[in-house]
């Protein structure tokens, strides 16, 4: 009852022995995630966190059968790490790294087209299937298992949404943090589509923010499915001034269609239940699922 990652996923960590990699890999293992090893060039053959370290992704895949990778390498080397993962045969690549030059990602996006793989991020909190696998940096205890899928550009706002879903009495199938950079591997629409086609996901919470047209594209897609599953949406940045970068590199209001108002209008027109306040995402979901909203 999930997408992208589950109990059976075999996960490797790129940047395994670094500070970030060590800490988060430890947290992932503690959560019960099936971490089968890691990659740090030059440290192949060592053991780290009781798991084998490999020099290359290719070695790691050959030895462990890994199909998922999570990347914690510094920005200057992250594009290379993503391409190595794809080239090494990884199917789901989750890149946590923040600050990768956009020019590098232009090349990565093109490179990945030749491979049968999916990139989540970069600059994202990762993916979690509660009770199955945590492939990211989110606090696992907030996410209780259930049937609501979550898609979000932001980290802590994803936790906020998950917390509200759980407090409203529901649980989460898979939460996907797609990242806040101008170029990301999986768009809002792609992530929503995964959840729409997941038989165990019954409703979707879609959290967006100002900038770009991802939410509009996702909304059009949702409408095209005949609103097969109910979707609750929220857009952060209703009060953001024009032309200013709000933390995320992608969060700049440019044209008329990427303001919060415009996005919410498009979402409503496509049959999405929009929560105006970030505090009422759970309440809105609850009303929708109880049939109190038409």
């Amino acid at each position: 009852m999930s997408v992208l990652v589950n109990k059976q996923s075999k996960i490797i960590v790129q940047g395994f022995t670094g500070g970030e990699g060590t800490f988060h890999a430890g947290q992932m293992i503690e959560y019960g995630t099936n971490v089968v090893g890691g990659v740090t060039p030059g440290k192949g053959g060592q053991q780290h966190l009781d798991r084998p370290v490999f020099n290359t992704v290719e070695d790691a895949v050959n030895e462990t059968g890994a199909d998922v990778s999570i990347i914690f390498v510094p920005p200057a080397f992250a594009a290379d790490a993503i391409m190595e993962a794809a080239n090494g045969g990884i199917k789901v690549i989750v890149c946590i790294t923040e600050g990768i030059p956009v020019a590098d990602m232009v090349g990565v996006k093109e490179y990945l087209k030749a491979y049968d793989c999916r990139l989540i991020g970069p600059n994202c909190p990762g993916v979690i299937t509660p009770g199955g696998a945590k492939v990211g940096i989110m606090p696992g205890f907030v996410f209780k298992a259930g049937k609501v899928g979550i898609v979000s550009k932001s980290g802590t706002l994803t936790y906020e949404a998950a917390d509200q879903v759980v407090k409203a009495g529901y649980g989460i199938s898979t939460a996907i943090g797609i990242g806040g950079d101008p170029i990301i591997g999986t768009s809002t629409k792609d992530a929503v589509e995964l959840l729409m086609n997941d038989p165990e996901t019954e409703a979707i919470v879609m959290i967006g923010e100002i900038g770009g047209n991802y939410e509009a594209k996702a909304a059009e897609y949702i409408k095209s499915t005949g609103n097969k599953k109910p979707v609750v949406g929220f857009i952060a940045g209703q009060t953001a001034p024009k032309g200013k970068r709000m933390g995320h590199a992608g969060a700049i209001i440019g044209g008329a269609d990427d303001t919060a108002e415009a996005k919410m209008r498009i979402m409503r027109a496509c049959g999405i239940y929009v929560s105006e306040s970030p505090a009422s995402i759970g309440l809105t979901l609850s009303k929708v699922l109880k049939g109190e909203m038409v």
């Binding site: 932001s154 706002l157 923010e209 009060t239 709000m246 995320h248 969060a251 306040s277 970030p278």
Partner: peptide, 14 residues
Amino acid sequence: GAGLAMATMDIIKL
């Protein structure tokens, strides 16, 4: 977090 920061600005307004 940037997303939550924007959401917090919104809730101040609301």
